[in-house]
Amino acid sequence: MARNVSTRRKVVVTVVAWTIGILIFFPILWTFLTSFKSEAEAIASPPSLLFFDWTTENYFEVQSRSNYFRHFMNSVVVSFGSTLIGLVIAIPSAWAMAFSPTKRTKDVLMWMLSTKMMPSVGVLVPMYLMFRNTGLLDTRTGLVIVLTLINLPIIIWMLYTYFKEIPGEILEAARMDGASLSKEIIYVLTPMAIPGIASTLLLNIILAWNEAFWTLNLSAAKAAPLTAFIASYSSPEGLFYAKLSAASTMAIAPILILGWFSQKQLVRGLTFGAVK
């Protein structure tokens, strides 16, 4: 009897949860479907969910009209570039703070986090002017620099929480076993640190890919990553729903897939290790 009740309950929960899940996901699904419609079908009333003439024309159209691929590459270069440079700077710092902490380590970490609290708009004007005067405006290099700086605290925090979990005794064991510092790093530390570094990398690519304050304000036609490119659809051109949808689908698909693979690390990274 009890078993029956719990199965019925499970079915009810399943139906409710799936309904809510699909509702939340619906705008994305709808964008995806619309990207395969003709412009006329995209605004047809009543709208059709699945039964329309599927076409991939919009994707080619978007590319040929606005050189979509260049903006895509801008996004790739800016997000990967800023993340990799950030890692190179952050790994030694996080490492030192995790493995030879001092009384001030906690303060330094909190201070780093506090730089994230400064609203970007507070430094928009000088950044814009500095970039204009040094020719960094609307360049990939400029965006890489800014995104590296704004995500550096998050990278350091994430790495710190991962490194912190590597037990110190294992490193001491390696030392007792006669490993020099370089061998200790190659054979013991790196293999144990790689999962944490990989999650950090993943999360930061997601954050950098979707960053939409500096990319919108510091880029124009040439270096515009997808965030800025898509924003240009807010003009009347945005009424071409099918093409907007195709451009959007391509912009969000890679990150959606990356994000789905790294759900667990997402929580950890975004909460600076406070929730695991």
Binding site: P167, E169, I170, E172, A173, A174, R175, M176, D177, G178, A179, S180, Y187, V188, P191, M192
Partner: peptide, 20 residues
């Protein structure tokens, strides 16, 4: 002397085995 050159071996409380 650094630990490695003292010619001693140590067994740790947590065993400190290399997990990978």
């Amino acid at each position: 002397l650094p630990p490695a050159q003292r010619g001693l071996s140590m067994v740790f409380q947590s065993y400190a085995l290399y997990p990978h």
